[in-house]
């Protein structure tokens, strides 16, 4: 039987402060009475990584203000000079698709557009008159911005192009033209390699990517990874993959004797696992809300 211990998928959470992801996990864990108890696991080794050790502190201290980084999809509008012509085109677009800009977060990308502050304010006002509400401005010099203008935005990442509505297909509106990310840019998700056996009582936490353990994970030890977990020795302790809400993460090990395995919050204890898999090379993945395991032949 697979049970869930209360993680909510939060794949859009980027970490702003060191403690935020942990506090999130901790508060989620504290809400439930499932057997996965992070409070019992203290770690001694991963100084290099996030402060998973701080769980205890976080829970006993009064709640810190919760700040979360979150990324959203926004439309980035790129105005072109002269603005009069560009606005005419925009009006044409809006007439083909009523409400195209309604309830959509819009970011104005003025990179390379030679305008001054008053022109920018005028443009924002013009857009406002057309029900286009600008949430942020990208690519503007700081001298161009002021308290009366939307805040600057940086480090946007491109997403798939948006399909602009044409005359016939007014209702078919897909994703965004380009994407602006609020908060810090996501770094590439590096995987880490642990070159030593993970000993009883140790806990390795790697929230961002895959984790590879060259040795064994001892009984009473714990490895937690945002991505997949690969153990090239015996897995005797706990392995939790995809903990930040990655349901496609998997667990691989050369010798399967785990006490507990979890993917994206769905977990199984050794009692619930197929005894025929014990001691074999095994991979574990999530199918819907069920953990599936299979011997690697």
């Amino acid at each position: 039987m697979t049970r869930h211990y209360g993680y909510k998928p939060q794949n859009k959470v980027l970490s702003i402060s060191e403690e935020v992801p942990d506090a999130t996990i901790a508060s989620n864990c504290a809400l439930m009475s499932a057997p996965v108890n992070f409070l019992l696991t203290t770690s001694s080794l991963h100084q290099g990584n996030r402060k998973f050790t701080k769980l205890n502190d976080v829970l006993t201290q009064s709640r810190p203000i919760r700040l979360k980084g979150r990324s959203f999809l926004a439309l980035a509008l790129t105005p072109e000079l002269p603005f009069e012509d560009w606005l005419v085109q925009l009006d044409a677009l809006a007439s083909r698709s009523a409400g195209f800009f309604l309830r959509r977060p819009i970011v104005l990308d003025v990179q390379g557009v030679e305008i001054d502050r008053s022109q920018l304010r005028e443009l924002v006002n013009q857009l406002g008159a057309r029900n286009v509400r600008v949430m942020g401005i990208e690519g503007a010099r700081s001298s161009m911005l002021g308290p009366d203008l939307p805040p600057p935005m940086q480090d946007g990442r491109a997403a798939s192009d948006v399909e602009l509505p044409n005359g016939e297909e007014t209702e078919k509106v897909a994703a965004a033209e380009s994407v602006v990310v609020s908060g810090p840019p996501t770094k590439a998700t590096p995987s880490i390699v642990v070159n030593q056996p993970v000993r009883s009582g140790q806990s390795f936490f790697h929230p961002d990517g895959d984790m590879t353990i060259v040795g064994s994970v001892a009984s009473g030890a714990e490895v937690v990874s945002g991505g997949s977990i690969h153990v090239y020795g015996a897995l005797r302790g706990r392995a939790m993959a995809g903990t930040m809400g990655n349901a496609s993460a998997r667990i691989f090990c050369r010798k399967f004797e785990a006490e507990l395995i979890a993917i994206d919050g769905f977990y199984q204890t050794s009692e619930d696992m197929d005894p025929r898999l014990r001691g074999r090379a095994v991979q574990i993945w999530l199918e819907g809300e069920t953990l599936r395991a299979e011997a690697l032949s």
């Binding site: 001694s44 080794l45 000993r199 009582g201 001892a218 009984s219 009473g220 030890a221």
Partner: peptide, 14 residues
């Protein structure tokens, strides 16, 4: 054996 494993971890960190 498990206690020893724990101690080895401490030897490698403390």
């Amino acid at each position: 054996v498990r206690d020893s494993d724990r101690i080895i971890g401490l030897l490698d960190s403390k």
